[in-house]
Amino acid sequence: MEENSLGMIESELAILLRRLTSISTYKIGSLDRSAYLLLQQIAYHGSSGVKALSDEFRLDISTVSRQAAALEQKGYVSRIPDPLDGRAYFLQITDQGKTELNDNKNARLAIIEELLQSWSDEERMMFGQLMRKFNRTLIES
């Protein structure tokens, strides 16, 4: 990679993070980012334990436990016992959680669609693929 391209990526990432931080003070839908990501992970990959979720998001177990408790209190997830360990449990998304997740996803998609309305389908696809590749690279590092 040329130094010029690295400089451009570094600068654009700094700007992106700043702008995302500024707009993240305005909630999109009723779920904050952590709740949205936890619900999405459970909905797409099935019931999950707090340890697996903390590993996935590289967070402390106590942080994920606190976030999961808030989701449970709102009725978005329920606990199901781990059949192999009576002390442990898995989190399962409820119907209410699925509805909330879908509503929030649609609100996010509407904003992204508006932002990228002048982009071609090819540009959107390329951007999504490169973001996915970058996110996977972050996990592997």
Rank of each mutant, 00 (worst) to 15 (best):
E3Q: 11
N4S: 10
N4Q: 04
G7R: 15
M8Y: 13
S11V: 00
L16V: 07
L20R: 10
L20M: 07
T21H: 00
S22E: 13
S24W: 03
K27I: 00
S30Q: 06
D32N: 07
A35C: 00
Y36A: 02
Q41M: 10
I42K: 01
A43I: 01
H45K: 07
S47W: 11
S48I: 08
S48H: 03
G49P: 01
K51F: 01
L53N: 14
R58Q: 09
S62Q: 06
R66Q: 02
A69I: 01
K74Q: 15
R79G: 01
D82P: 01
D82I: 02
R87P: 04
Y89A: 14
Y89I: 09
I93S: 05
Q96K: 14
E100C: 15
D103L: 06
K105Q: 06
K105S: 08
R108L: 15
A110G: 07
I111V: 14
E114C: 11
E114Q: 14
L115K: 11
L116K: 08
L116N: 08
W119S: 11
W119P: 04
W119I: 04
W119H: 13
M125I: 08
M125D: 10
G128F: 03
G128C: 11
K133L: 15
K133Q: 10
R136L: 13
L138R: 09
I139L: 08
I139C: 09
E140P: 00
E140Q: 09
